[in-house]
Design a protein around this nucleic acid. Structure first.
Lengths: 117, 117
DNA sequence: TTCAGTAGTTAACTAAAGGTTAGTAGTAAC
DNA sequence: GTTACTACTAACCTTTAGTTAACTACTGAA
């Protein structure tokens, strides 16, 4: 009789590890949300998310490389660059939903604890 | 007719923000998994997760402060310290499940892409 | 008595993440 | 002709995250 379920644990840890590798960090999920909600332009996203140009540029490159979005340059003039989520990003919808909901509830809990004191 | 749903977007971004504030970073979710799966001791968790003593110590303090776990010292001799998840951590089960599953599938996808070349 | 284990802490350091400011090159409005 | 917007990039700097090794203090086994 073990208290610890080593196999399940290892499996879950590995899954989390792989997920964090692809979509961990401060910005990736936020960028994907912005794209899913219909934002396509660089400056637009920068303002919406509250990210610096440098970070946005870096993260967009990584996300493109990993198949989460595409970058389309429409030669102008004026030149317009559009970022769009790929179908693969749809596989993240559930993650986004669950995580965002949890965050909302957590914020509510914290708020109540503070006001309750 | 807007392509962008600003309200939904803002709400989801805020939710993600709150979630990442509490459980973002490389270690917090992993520690919670280890605890949920039944690990209770410091060195045990260190080995299972592959985290340094310093980081584990720091993260455990934060998680305790935020109500995700309790620290029980059983005065010995020998002194034994037990970490246990609180009920509140159960609210993370769905997050853990969804994220870990996504990670697994993502790894599988990457693996296939590499072998397919 | 020496070696190993428990539960950490501390110091010294490196690496990664992120911010700020400035600048580029083009368009377009005032 | 000056200001502003778009989509960035480069240099510089700070902060946060993380590693390694040494050390504490106590227990128990060889």
């Amino acid at each position: 009789m073990e208290k610890v379920s080593k196999e399940t644990c290892k499996k879950r840890l590995k899954g989390i590890d792989d997920a964090l590798y692809a979509i961990g960090g401060k910005w990736k999920l936020k960028i994907i949300i912005a794209l899913i909600e219909g934002y396509t332009r660089f400056n637009e996203m920068q303002r919406t998310i509250g990210i610096s140009a440098k970070m946005l540029s870096l993260e967009l490159k990584e996300l493109e490389l990993n198949g989460f979005l595409t970058r389309e340059v429409h030669p102008g003039p004026p030149v317009v660059v559009e970022y769009k989520v790929t179908e693969y990003s749809d596989s993240l919808q559930e993650v986004l939903q669950v995580l965002s909901n949890w965050g909302e509830k957590h914020r509510e809990k914290i708020r109540q604890e503070r006001s309750g004191k």
